[in-house]
Amino acid sequence: MKITRISVFQIVTPFPQGYSLSRGRTWTSFESTIVAIETDAAIVGWGEVQTMGGNYLPAFAKGAIAAIDELAPHLIGENPLQIDRINYLMDHFLFGHPYGKSPIDMACWDILGKATGMPLCDLLGGRFEGGLDLMCDPKVGSIEAMLAETAAFREKGYRRMSLKLGGNVAEDVSRMRAIFEHAQPGEEYYADCNRGWTRDQALRVMRQIRDLDVYIEQPCYSYEDCLAVRRRTDHPMILDEIVDSPEMVMRIIADSAADLINIKISRVGGLTKARRARDMCVTAGIPMTIQDVGGSGIVQGAIYGLAQSVPKELRHSVYNPLARNLSDGFTDAPIPIQGGGGVVEASDRPGLGQEPLPGSLGDPIAVYGGRG
């Protein structure tokens, strides 16, 4: 089998109510770059990366498009089933830019699944039992707004709550205490400042919430600051934004820097490298949350497929990229929440289990190769 054609599509989805994180970062739209890889076997694979501006992660939509433009000509004629070779070639021809490589890698896994008739979780090692507990992310705001949003998620059945915080010590402590007054049995909370605290601020927060049963997620910008905070608090630590490669996962394990690791597929460079990171965590016995920045049902299928391949006891939560209703209507089989209980299971359809609806993506913005 050979790659004959690579097409690139772009979707900009307005989000007029805005999505806010610490340090005043707010976005009113999200951009998805979607890749279709065609083969001489008449199999088409789909992949996607979505970005939030240019100041959340070192990733932005124009960069993804430019990276694909750099990579795609080198992949025409290659066998998409040889996924490790595809990843080697991408790393050889373009240093860094993992988010630009992710949709290509994802599309190759989709092709492999369709060629073998196997769903993604089986390709990644096998389906482990149990549903996937969804994580929600009440966005930073006033105490009243966050209480209302948390309650709304609770009504939908969510039991994993990632509380977005703003970076101000007093305000963040007040937010958490107010929310914990309404916490219900069985719920678990992440205090997620998205790198918004300095080291001293993080330590002040930790001191004031020692009585709260909460995970601390990515408190500071740098790895060194997060590690220093971890060594001075008894709260369990999650690392997120800095987990940008399997190599970083190795470092985290060696330093005992986290109790839970968040693997975002596009941030580490695609499903292939996310699988490598997963295997390291399984070997070390470190639980995981499986996520990506966002996207349509294509990304949803990738997240759920990877998460279902994680042993149940190490699978802490997953993120539903459709939770913000950003990309509904682009794919044919978005996976619903089971019985409104905040739980899902990966698709048993081949590959990612998702196909864009005809005409939903518009015309490609770039095409490489010809028809096979």
Rank of each mutant, 00 (worst) to 15 (best):
R5N: 13
P119D: 03
N168G: 14
R5K: 15
S102I: 04
Q218C: 05
L322K: 02
L165N: 06
L132G: 02
G96Y: 00
G285F: 00
I261S: 01
M280Y: 08
Q354S: 05
L260N: 00
I6C: 05
S327E: 11
P350F: 02
L212E: 15
A72R: 05
A152Y: 07
V344Y: 03
P80S: 06
D234Y: 12
L361G: 10
C121S: 14
T272E: 09
A302K: 02
G100L: 02
R159C: 10
R349N: 10
Y304A: 10
E171Q: 15
Y223Q: 04
Q338D: 14
Q308M: 02
L75S: 03
K312Q: 13
E355V: 15
L163A: 11
L260E: 00
L227Y: 12
P356A: 09
S142T: 15
D40S: 12
G167I: 03
D200K: 13
S7I: 05
G157W: 07
H235T: 03
Q10K: 15
L306Y: 04
P98A: 02
V243S: 01
T272W: 11
G285N: 00
L165S: 04
S266A: 14
R177A: 06
Q82L: 13
P321S: 08
E144T: 11
A183D: 11
D363G: 14
R23D: 13
I303N: 08
R177H: 10
G359R: 11
S347E: 02
T26D: 03
F93A: 10
P98L: 01
M248K: 12
Q291A: 11
Y304P: 01
K139W: 14
I43W: 04
G54M: 11
D91L: 00
S162P: 04
G53W: 01
I43P: 06
K273A: 07
T39Y: 03
E181Q: 15
L322S: 01
A178W: 09
R85H: 12
G47C: 00
A274D: 06
I83N: 02
D40K: 07
F93W: 12
C108A: 05
D244Y: 14
Q338M: 14
F9C: 00
E129K: 14
P98D: 00
M280H: 07
D255R: 04
Q218I: 05
G24I: 03
R315P: 01
V44S: 15
S20Y: 06
P321E: 07
M1N: 03
K273C: 02
A36G: 09
D213C: 09
D211M: 09
T116N: 09
A277N: 00
G24A: 03
L203T: 00
G130W: 07
